[in-house]
Amino acid sequence: MRIVDNRGLPCPQPVINTRKALKETGGPVVSIVDNEAARENVTRFARSQGYEVEAVQDGGIWRLTITPPGGGGQGAHVEHASPTGRGDQANEGARVILVGTDRLGRGSDELGSVLMRSFLYTLTQLSSPPDTMIFINAGVRLTTEGSPVLDELGQLQDRGTEILSCGTCLDYFGLRDKLAVGRVTNMYEIVETLASPARVLSL
C-alpha cells in the first residue's frame, strides 16, 4: 500500500501528493497529515473522486486510508482470487513482519542478538523488502538510539518499508524520545494492519 507522508506540508501540497499517489496506484493509499485543513482537504478531494476515506487520529496526526468504492485494492484482490490462482494472488498482498523481541530465537541471548542483526541485514539484501515492520515489546530496542541495526532499518525504510514502533512499548522502556527510525504507532493501527489480508511473519 502506498503511504504518502504530508506532515509539515502546506495546502494544497497534501492534496497534490495524494492525487498523484491515487493516479499512479488506483488506491488504496494512506495519506498522513498533521493539521485539520489538510485532513479536511484530502478527505474532500478523495470523496469528490469517489473514494472512501477512513481516518484514524493519533495525537495531532491523522492517518487517512483512501480506498476505491466497494472496498477495492489489495484486500479485494486476495478475496476475489480464483481457487487456482490463489497462490499468485496471495503474493500480491502486503508483507508485514511483527517483531516482538530484540533477539531471534530462544536458547542463547547472545546468539539471538547476532542472529537478529544477521536477519535484518539479509532482509536489506532481498529484491523486494517487506511493506511494513511493526516493533513491539522489547522489539522497540531495535528502533531506538543504541540499537545495533539502525543502519539496516534505515536502508529498509529508504526502500519503502514502513517502520512502526508501538507507543506503549516505547513508554514502558522509557524510549519514547529516543526513537531513531520510523514512527510511533498505536494498537489500533497494529491490529488493523495485522487483521488486513496481509502476509504476516511473526518473530
Binding site: 502546506p10 495546502c11 494544497p12 492534496v15 493539521n35 485543513a37 489538510a38 479536511e40 482537504n41 484530502v42 478527505t43 474532500r44 478531494f45 478523495a46 469528490s48 473522486q49
Partner: peptide, 8 residues
C-alpha cells in the same frame, strides 16, 4: 473547494 482546494 469540494475537491479539497481550500487554503488553510
Amino acid at each position: 473547494g469540494a475537491m479539497g482546494m481550500f487554503p488553510a
